[in-house]
Design a protein around this nucleic acid. Sequence first.
DNA 1: TCCCGTAGCACTCCGATTGT
DNA 2: ACAATCGGAGTGCTACGGGA
Length: 233
Amino acid sequence: MVKWDDDIYNTPAYSVTDAARYLRIPVVTLRSWLKGRSYATQIGQQAFEPLIQRPDLALPQLSFTNLVEAHVLRIIRETHQVKLDKVRHALDYMSQQFDTAHPLVMRRFQTDGVDLFVDQVDRLVNVSRSGQLAMRETLKHLLTRIEWNAEGIANRFFPIIEWVPEPGTDKIIFLDPSIRFGKPVIAGQGVPTAAIVSLIDAGDSIDDVAEEFDCSPEQIKAAIQFEAQNRAA
DNA sequence: TCCCGTAGCACTCCGATTGT
DNA sequence: ACAATCGGAGTGCTACGGGA
């Protein structure tokens, strides 16, 4: 089993609320994925088991690894309406094949993992040929928002921004546990988006802030947009 | 004020049952 | 044998309360 217990990628670092905002997932939904839930049926209470394994069950916080896993799961659920129990089965299979509890954050998932995963889902729900192709493309596209370290473990994540200054500039903001404790920062400069927005809120102009942090106005606008969508979530 | 947890409603999906 | 329907399970979400 691949282990990276004590590293920064598997340390509780994000509250459920923050993670839900970054990923655009309702807080309670994310909480259900993390902690499971119970629900009433005619034969009594039933349990919905957690989909994502937190690093420390005594703490509600997610690790960076959990954040990336939730991102992948959200896309699979939202784009392809695959039932969670099928996802669960496919993930169990992936865990065995990859010999890790976190197959979705391995670089191998990008190469042979996507095909393996789609094949598993297909076996469980009999996806159409076009559906399989669409799912492969979606997964491969969303994996372009993740970068891996030398060990093949996800170490940088580019959250989706609703508005970007111009096409092809949607990787302005990223989260990296080794930079600013994993808070959202501007790519290149490493300036926290929250710091930028607090200056703007205090009355500084976009150009002033851009100059102060040695950023472009487009980067500042993207940071404002990212923080605004988090607040609205 | 914010975060966390719980209750419960609404909706979808799927399998069982019933009708033709 | 197939189609229609029904009911329960599973899941997402809102609302609300408690605690820091």
